[in-house]
């Protein structure tokens, strides 16, 4: 392939993934709201409600507060959306391989996951409101808190794959191609189940949903980080939130549920891509239901100090137990 073809493929792939991320993300936000409504015995909004909300926000007046720093205040939402879309470029969607990628992109994804949150922190500090400042501080604390359990869950999988003699274990393509469940024995499977649970509990914090939404806390901080945002800037954060939902779900799918329909049932290549894509959306739906809707409907908000102790102490300990089980499994397997 020539250089120009490579660039064209990258640009085309980026645009396609951006459109996919935003559309699918808004759709799954709608699905989440519908799930929550049904669990509360309500009818709930239509599935396209987030699209309507985003369209409305785009048409509202965009207010920049007097004591904000305008270029940071306006730049943060763009950075949040762009970085969320960038992560999506590294994640496999069904049997469609990632647009970018290579050795060690799993580590890169872990770093990139912090960028949308940091963009919100920067935007919060730049908006010059005490509520936003408190929210930004809380967001940083939460960011530091959930990083340890998330890292344990990700590293354990890559390490186990490398112990099984699979080349390039830190590449998401490798992880998606070699489901870790087929590598481990029964002890390791218990460890992986624990790690899966941990990832399910990190997801709400990453997406700042209840019970880990202390940084937005409508009732105490009036919207926290986002308190000063309105109109187009707020809509961009809304879209970034939608893309992040897809990103976290796709990461969980790639790490723990990477199977494709086409590897079980023989079918024509074109049909296989479509079937795998639909199957991928079904798996994302599963993740959205269990780690976002179910948790957020069944729990109230944690205080910020409770969030830190939950992640560092309890989920961190659980992560080490899971990691230890995976390591014992590797020893038992004789590698």
């Amino acid at each position: 392939m020539t250089l120009i073809e490579t660039i064209l493929a990258a640009v085309g792939g980026t645009v396609a993934m951006a459109v996919f991320g935003i559309v699918a993300g808004l759709f799954f936000l709608g699905v989440d709201r519908k799930f929550a409504a049904l669990m509360q015995a309500r009818i709930g909004p239509p599935l396209r409600q987030p699209f309507i909300d985003a369209a409305k926000l785009m048409r509202k007046e965009n207010i920049v507060p007097e004591n904000a720093i305008p270029w940071i205040f306006n730049g943060a939402p763009i950075l949040a959306l762009a970085s969320a879309i960038t992560i999506l470029l590294y994640l496999p969607v069904g049997s469609i391989m990632p647009v970018l990628g290579g050795a060690g992109d799993l580590i890169l994804v872990m770093y990139l996951l912090t960028i949308p949150a940091l963009a919100m922190v920067v935007g919060g500090f730049a908006s010059g409101s005490p509520y936003a400042t408190v929210g930004a501080q809380r967001e940083m604390v939460i960011l530091i808190a959930y990083e340890l359990p998330l890292a344990i869950a990700i590293i354990a999988i890559a390490w186990r794959l490398s112990m099984a003699g699979i080349a390039d274990p830190f590449s998401l393509t490798t992880i998606a191609a070699n489901p870790v469940w087929g590598v481990v024995g029964p002890v390791g499977a218990v460890g992986l189940l624990i790690l899966l649970g941990i990832l399910a509990w990190v997801t709400p914090a990453e997406l700042s949903r209840i019970p880990f939404d202390a940084q937005e806390a409508e009732t105490e901080l009036a919207g926290g980080l986002l308190v000063e945002y309105s109109g187009k800037n707020f809509a961009l954060f809304y879209l970034a939130q939608a893309v992040k939902t897809i990103v976290m779900a796709a990461l969980a799918v790639a790490l723990f549920l990477p199977w494709n329909l086409s590897s079980f049932v023989a079918m024509a290549p074109a049909v296989a891509v479509a079937a795998d894509f639909v199957f991928f959306l079904a798996k994302v739906l599963l993740v959205v239901f269990f780690s976002i809707s179910l948790i957020r409907v069944s729990m109230a908000r944690f205080r910020i100090n409770q969030i830190v102790s939950i992640y560092w102490v309890w989920l961190g300990l659980a992560g080490f137990v899971g990691l230890a089980l995976v390591m014992i499994d590797a020893i038992l397997a004789g590698v």
Binding site: L221, E228, Y229, S230
Partner: peptide, 8 residues
């Protein structure tokens, strides 16, 4: 919503 900036 919690903030007048978000409200209609």
């Amino acid at each position: 919503v919690g903030s007048p900036k978000h409200a209609d």
